[in-house]
Design a protein around this nucleic acid. Structure first.
Ligand SMILES: [Zn+2]
Length: 323
DNA sequence: CGACTTTGACCGGCGC
DNA sequence: GCGCCGGTCAAAGTCG
């Protein structure tokens, strides 16, 4: 019992929340701590079976009751275009080219070679194969290791567990998390034919941080318009998003699937406009020549992530706003 | 009444 | 093989 628990604690990064050290993920993590992050990445990622995230994003929102912290998720959903063929998102030949900084991550790189399973997951999500015959059916053959689509974990400092991201979700499960007194909720997109799932839990260390893990890509547009917290400007108007309140999106984003994880620290995402008075960052790619370790179709597939990633990641702290 | 949540049971993988 | 555990199902319950 205890031993088990201890083991869990040791590999607290099992899924998502436990991965982070509260000391590191403080409200204002200075750029000088980047090295510390690298150390974290060095953890044996292969330990957690299918929980290999591709991106993390730490949304350092002000968890003031006044503002709705879900704003960032709103533009998340809206910024990410729907996918037509999710299976092609992850080429099986997307092996790592650069030497991984973590020797253990070798096994992680092999996680993206099961792209075929993605389609099965999507198909199985349909309700046609849900007769009252058996209790729980096995959508995927046992042969398949149940490889899932890439996941994106977004950490948001908020008191609200279920953040409104513009999509309709149906809660289909809830489990207790040992690392955290807060439970983990399982949601699934209610749109027919869309097998996107997401998990919502709280960080083990910092309970104020909500970790929302998205799995898969929506095959449709956002069914509902986000509430007044966010205004999405159509392309005809502007290629940027507008946020009413201050979304201090001090972000940390790193790629986990590839060999070398990168950090992304940016005050405001480029595609959104803070307070609708700041400069409206255009959607075109920045002049920075970001070179991911691999072609990474997954990066461009993730739409929004693509926007986030090539910003000014890598160890390029230079002087991003002192203070 | 429809959409969504709650909640216990179940399944499959994994360690012992 | 057994038990633990993460993930999932689905009937019952809740809400507007
Ligand atoms: Zn969807």
């Amino acid at each position: 019992m205890e031993k088990k628990f201890e083991e869990e604690s040791r590999m607290g990064f099992d899924d998502s929340a436990g991965f982070y050290s509260p000391a590191v993920f403080s409200d204002d993590f200075p750029s000088s701590n980047f090295d510390s992050f690298s150390s974290i990445f060095d953890m044996p990622c292969d330990a957690h079976k299918a929980s290999n995230f591709d991106f993390y994003y730490y949304n350092n929102n002000n968890s003031n009751s006044n503002n709705n912290p879900s704003s960032f998720f709103d533009l998340l959903s809206t910024a990410a275009p729907p996918l037509s063929s999710p299976a092609s998102t992850v080429p099986e030949s997307s092996e790592v080219v650069n030497a991984p900084t973590t020797p253990n991550s070798s096994s992680v790189s092999s996680s993206s070679n099961e792209a075929a399973a993605i389609e099965e997951v999507n198909n199985s999500t349909t309700t046609h194969d849900k007769p009252s015959a058996s209790k729980v059916l096995k959508p995927i053959k046992k042969n398949q290791k149940k490889q899932r689509e890439p996941r994106f974990a977004f950490m948001t400092k908020s008191d609200i567990d279920h953040l409104d991201d513009g999509y309709r979700w149906r809660k289909y499960g809830q489990k207790a998390v040992k690392n955290s007194p807060y439970p983990r909720s399982y949601y699934r997109c209610t749109t027919a034919g869309c097998g996107v799932k997401k998990r919502v839990e709280r960080s083990s260390g910092d309970h104020t941080i909500v970790v929302t893990t998205y799995e898969g890509q929506h095959t449709h547009q956002s069914p509902i318009m986000p509430r007044g917290s966010l205004r999405v400007l159509p392309e005809s108007t502007n290629n940027s998003l507008t946020v009413d309140h201050d979304t201090t999106a001090t972000g940390l984003l790193f790629q986990h699937n590839t060999s070398q994880p990168f950090m992304y620290i940016a005050p405001p995402p480029p595609f959104l406009t803070i307070n609708s008075s700041s400069v409206a960052a255009s959607h075109n790619p920045p002049p920075i020549s970001f070179q991911p370790p691999s072609p990474q179709a997954s990066v461009r597939d993730h739409g929004l992530l693509q926007d986030l990633v090539p910003l000014q990641m890598r160890k390029e702290p230079k002087d991003e706003q002192n203070g």
